[in-house]
Design a protein around this nucleic acid. Structure first.
Lengths: 220, 220
DNA sequence: CCGGAAGTGGAGTCCTTCCTTCACTTCAAG
DNA sequence: CTTGAAGTGAAGGAAGGACTCCACTTCCGG
């Protein structure tokens, strides 16, 4: 009894080819224009009808999830690699630089790191799992970097989340005209994160509040 | 011969009253929802027809200029006050905090500080003049703060522009859920700007490039 | 208090974007 | 092959937002 549900029946070869083209087109379009790119532009880039995009990806979140699956995996891998780095402070700085560079080179990914999706389908769930895996490694990176005494003791892992929102702002404003502006900003931040001469800071926002901030429907 | 052009004839009293209501409504709406708030919502808030808004403010830039004239004046005044502060480093930090606080309390103003308008009408020109005045004072604040040795010597006045873009990103992402998150980020930045233990940085973006970044038509 | 200029807003156009429908085409199992 | 299930896109509906038109109302100088 090999009864198949709709979702696990394999696509016909032509449909699979189209799906691949759509994902590739979405990756290019999102990288260039952020997560708000209209569906018809993606369809045009993929060389298919708009209806085909909607058929395969019933809502924007599904398409985003499919388009950024690979990149989110790199993101998680980068965290694992940074964690493996023998010098935790180097791992810390390297990871921050690398993630911000990923934002700078892909406006969609920059946006993606400042929102989360209420998982309504498996692809979205998969994406969020990788994000979470990366964050778990990040927490360990922070702990180890703090232990070396090079990272200031009051650094909170959530400070990265806020930095990513800030970097997204810089990238959005300077993309195309001053595409390296973010680097100086990030280096300032890294120097602020170093333990040397660190001064007291306001408390970080409550975890809860930050989670809700990430869940806002979309960037307004 | 008191011939009057269209632009300098005073408005009829009812029209002037409506204009005032529109500006007030726009201030509230922009503060809440950023510069993209639809015209019909502003019209509704003002209690006038949509056509009246369009008649008085032919394009969005005119309305924005009218709505933020006062706030941009405060912005320039804050720079002048910071410049008058006897301790230049205190003036520097106070100004940065104050400006970022203005962004946090008004999403429209946060957006406004990350774009400029190609002045096409007197109100817009006026707004840009005040922005420029503030920036001229800022340059002096930076010079004096550097002279005290408390501000790192490689700080560039344009670093504030990038910080405002970053802060706009934080504010946009956290408004409503973690409305104080920006403060910690700004304190990190101020500590990075302090001369103590400062490390080399990447060069700031070219002035030209930053100016063009501010001129991008709208935040995408 | 009257008449014409100034001002108004409801209703409409145009445009963009999301999303669906359906007559037609393509695939692949038998 | 044949055939029917899977897949397709042109066309169009619905929704929202910018902007305009014009019959009507309000103001105010004489």
């Amino acid at each position: 009894m090999t009864k198949r549900t709709v979702s696990d029946r394999p696509l016909r070869t032509d449909a699979a080819r189209n799906r691949t083209a759509i994902v590739a087109a979405a990756q290019r379009a999102f990288a260039e224009g952020g997560l708000q790119v209209p569906f018809d532009e993606i369809a045009r880039l993929a060389g298919v009808g708009e209806a085909t995009v909607h058929r395969r990806f019933p809502d924007r979140a599904s398409l985003i999830a499919a388009a950024f699956c690979d990149k989110m995996t790199s993101y998680a891998d980068a965290a694992a690699e940074a964690l493996a780095e023998p010098d935790p402070w180097k791992g810390f700085c390297g990871y921050v630089r690398r993630v911000c560079a990923m934002q700078a080179s892909d406006r969609g990914f920059a946006d993606l790191l400042t929102i989360t999706f209420a998982a309504a389908n498996p692809a979205v769930e998969e994406l969020e799992l990788r994000r979470d895996a990366a964050f778990r490694d990040w927490i360990t990176i922070v702990r180890k970097a703090r232990a070396t005494g090079r990272l200031r003791p009051d650094f909170h892992p959530d400070d990265l989340v806020v930095l990513l929102m800030a970097n997204a702002g810089v990238v959005a404003a300077t993309a195309g005209t001053a595409p390296d502006a973010w680097q100086r900003h990030v280096e300032y931040m890294l120097q602020a994160f170093a333990a040397d001469n660190s001064q007291p800071l306001p408390a970080p926002p409550a975890r809860e509040a930050l989670v809700r901030a990430l869940q806002r429907t979309q960037r307004t």
